[in-house]
Structure formats: C-alpha cells, structure tokens
Design a binder for these strands. Structure first.
Lengths: 281, 281
DNA sequence: GAGCTTAAGAGGTCAGACCACTTGGTCTGC
DNA sequence: GCAGACCAAGTGGTCTGACCTCTTAAGCTC
C-alpha cells in the first residue's frame, strides 16, 4: 500500500545523502479534523518531514540543517516554502535560525513557543497572579518529584548553584542566572520533561513582561537561604517539605512583585485600566 | 523621545485607517538578550505590531485582518515578510489562516502552539506517562479551583455536558465531544486562563498522538458516572473531593491507555525501541 | 603575531507572476 | 420560481530569481 507519488517530499527524500534516511517515513497527508487545521500543505509537509527526521534520529538537538537553497532544491520545493516551514518550527522553539550562520535544531530547555504565552495573554487577559498560581502548582509539584526521583548528579548541581548564589549575593544579575538554573535543575530532577517545559513557558513569559526586577529590591541573602532549605529538603528526599518550601518561595516572590507593582502604580499616573491588577505580560 | 524613523511599521501605521491606532505603540527594537533571539527584524516587528493592535483592542479574537497584499502595502513591507510574521503567529495558535477566505485572530480555547508539544516531544523524549502526570496535576488543581471559584453559569454548563454524555453513551464520537467540553468548562471555571491553556496544550498533544481511542473500549456509562460525581463535588464546592475524583478519573484514563498499548504492542511486532514505553506523541 | 581586509556562505527581503481555494452572484433548465 | 451548474472576484499559497545583510574565517598588511 505504499503508493508512490502521493506525497511529494518523502519520495525525493529517499535519495537525500545527507541524512541516512531510509525513505520510510510516511507523510500523513492530513489527519487532523478537529479543527480545520490551517498551515498549508507544503508547510506541514516540511514540518512533518523534519519531525520524521528528528524522530528517527537523523537530526539531533544542536545539529545544523542544510542551507536553505540546497535543502529546498533537495526537497523539490521553493526556498520560500521551505522557509515557511522552518519559520513555523522556529516559532514553536523547535529550531533556531541564526542569520549568516545557519539553521539548527534547538537544544537546551524546551520551551513551548517563546512568546506564545505573552501573545495569548494579550488575547485572553492573562493576569500576573495567574502566572504565579501556575508556577506555584508546577514548581511545587516538581520540587516534590525531585525529592522522590532526583539522582545524585542533580543534587550535586543543585548544591553548586546554591553555593554560587551565596557567592554572587552582591551581583543581582549574576545571582539571577543561578537562581534560574537552580529551578531548571529541579525541573530536570523531577523526571518529567513536560512539566519542565510548561514551567519554562510560564516563567519565560513572566520575564518578558517585567524584565527581571523582582527580588533585586530585597536582600538576596534571604533568597539564597530559602533555596538552600529547598535543596536540603530535596536532598533528604523529604518531598512534602520540598513542596511546601517551594510553594512558600514562589508565594513570596509573588508578594515581592505585588509590592513593587503597587509602588510603581502609585508613582505613575493612573491612566487606563483603573484598578484591574495590570496585565502581567 | 518619540524619535520617528527608528521603527518602520509604527510610523506608517498611524495613517492606517482600518484600525483606530493612535500610532503610539513603540516597537521595542530588540530587547531579549537571554537567548540570541532569532526571528529577523521584520518578522518580529510584524508580530509586535499585531500584538500591539490586539493589546489596545483594535483587533479582537475572531476578527479578520486585511488581505495580505493590502496589509503589506500599508505596512510598507513585502508580502513575503508579512507572511513570515503571520506564519509565526499562526504557528503559535494566535492566528488562523484560511485559504481563500482570510486571516483571523484566533478565538476559542487558547492553546499554546498546537503541535508544539508533539514536536518537542520528539526532541526531548516525552513519554505518555509524563503527559498524564501533567494532566493529573493541572486538571486536579483546576477541579479544586473550579469548586472554589466556579460561578453558577459554569455549573449550568457542566450539568448540561453531563446530561449530554449520558445521552450519547452509545455514540463514542459524540460522547467524546462532550467529554472534552466538560473538562474545558472546568478549566474556565477555575478562573485561571493560563492553567487552562497549559491543559489544552497537553491534551491536544495527547490527541494528536493516539487519535482518540482511549475510553472507547470501555463502557462509557462508567465514564459518565465519574463525570457526574465530579460535577457534584464542584457544585457543592467541595474542592478536596473534586480534586480527588478528577485525579482518579485521569488515572483511570491512563490505565485504560496503558492496557490498550500493552495489547497493541503484543499484537504488533516488537520492532525497534525494545522495552522503552513507546513515545507518546 | 595582532589587527584589518576581503570573500564566501548563509539567512533576510523584495518584487511580481501565477496557482488553488472559497464564496457569492449569474445563468440555465426543469 | 427554484435547483443546480457556471463563472468571476477575492484571498491565501507557491514559485522564481535577484539583491541585501550578517557571520565567519582565510588571507594580507604592518
């Protein structure tokens, strides 16, 4: 039932020499009927194709795909169409495009569509407190999971980051880096990449909104202490305590931001959006 | 400090007659240094511009944007560049493009980049159980929140969907629709649009993966009963119970899928991926 | 050897033509 | 008069090929 000619890309791809494709992936022509599903034929075929390459291991995170002109020719489609497909995947954070260098499969913490949440927020009125509620839930749970499932290597990393935090207590910018890494490590230790992605998505939206000021106004010493306590709870596999501490930590971060916001709104003019707690992002 | 000429789009846009733009949005030229941030200038400017239009209320969900040729001319950019920007937003689910009809701002349940999770899954090895773990967490929490914050109108909708479920117990396809709606209504009742989006993202990835077979093999009567119980708990504002029931519900859905998978893998050949619990999506 | 210059390679943008799908109005036949 | 076929306008989809900008590294100069 392998009718050739139905899908364009697949067939040509079998003669692609760059990837060891055995030409076996079958491009599902169109299988989503839930919504009409937009994204024209070719775009989706490109996406599905690259996806197939990834799934069969021909492309791994960090690797570079062929130059657009070359790739397009190989796939027997125009460069424009290929670019559409690449753009689609870049938008979702699957690929990274670097001007003058090349296009790469993304690596690092998966993040479900960078600004996605931010844009959606504009549409559906996401509020700041909702983000924190989501973080509270996600990070709390992940802290508990990390305590249950974490491996030695994770504990080591966590300890390092805590140490770095104490060391950079006078350098907010540097401190922030380790703060983020600490939370990411917990996410990794939780053993659930999906929850990690969701967290990454939410927090990145938070950062985009208010370019990192929270926490800088308060003593970083206290913050570092909290992280140390969280680490200890995880280290001793006390999941309940880890969750409790993490939730308290997030909550206090929220309080800090609320304070700051109240301060700012008092200073500024009370232009539009009367009392409505300021759109988060 | 309103230096004209720095940003291309903004200026021209002030003479756009279609939207009542006051030409006030300032396109941030480039402000994310966390990652190098790809997505060329123009693309991002288009995105930011439409985003600004949405934020200031000039564009609302469901509305149509001008035809590409016209819009591109108005923005003084090429149609190709405009399309890149639109494609970017379409990829994130912010816009829907309908061939031969037009381009629209998305409406309905916000979903953070349709296939995003699916693609990411291929990259980072998401497993089925992780999805369920995420659903368990998200939906459990939302059920509890719905019990606390839900409004009468939500309760009404929930009751309706439960009734429809019982009514369509012999029509799995139809039943499924109401099942999904029930869960979406709970998400809405939770009062946290972000959590709702996250759930939508996870579940849609689930569906894409294994095109809805789960649950059809089992009696739908039992499923409807469970939903009815969940509804009751929410209705009586018993958040603990609502959460408990919801979590049990998701868990049993997971069990059902596991069974099915075990069945399927027993039938099929044990080709590659030896024991590794099958990539979910 | 340090620093500048230059050229190759890659992505970004543009312009205009043509294709494919939707929709709604018009025309024909019953 | 009404149903169905037909047609045309509008809109997104794709193609082509040219040119611009950025990055990188080799090569040159001092």
């Amino acid at each position: 039932m392998a009718n050739p000619g139905q899908c364009l890309l697949q067939c040509y791809f079998s003669e692609c020499t760059i990837f060891g494709s055995t030409g076996e992936h079958v491009l599902k022509p169109k299988q989503t009927e839930t919504t009409h599903e937009s994204e024209s034929h070719l775009t989706m075929q490109v996406v599905n194709h690259i996806r197939a390459l990834i799934e069969e291991g021909a492309l791994k995170p960090g690797e570079k795909i062929p130059p657009e002109r070359e790739f397009a020719q190989k796939l027997k489609i125009s460069r424009a169409s290929l670019r559409t497909g690449i753009g689609y995947m870049a938008a979702m954070g699957i690929m990274k495009v670097r001007h003058g260098v090349g296009t790469f499969i993304a690596e690092g913490p998966p993040e479900i569509g960078k600004s996605s949440l931010g844009l959606l927020g504009a549409l559906h009125g996401f509020k700041s407190w909702q983000m924190f509620e989501a973080r509270l839930l996600l990070e709390g749970k992940m802290a508990a999971l990390a305590a249950e499932r974490g491996k030695e290597e994770h504990f080591t990393l966590l300890a390092e980051e805590v140490a770095e935090m104490y060391a950079t207590i006078d350098d907010p910018e540097e401190y922030l880096i380790h703060d983020v890494r600490f939370h990411r490590t917990i996410a990794a230790a939780s053993g659930n990449a999906i929850l990690a992605s969701l967290m990454e998505t939410v927090t990145s939206a938070l950062y985009d909104g208010r370019r990192k000021t929270v926490g800088l106004t308060r003593s970083l010493k206290g913050s570092a202490d909290v992280h140390r306590e969280i680490y200890r709870a995880i280290r001793t596999r006390n999941s309940k305590e880890a969750q409790r501490l993490m939730e308290r930590h997030i909550q206090s971060a929220k309080d800090a931001q609320d304070d700051e916001e109240r301060m700012a709104s008092r200073k500024h003019k009370a232009s539009k959006t009367p009392a409505n707690g300021k759109v988060a992002v």
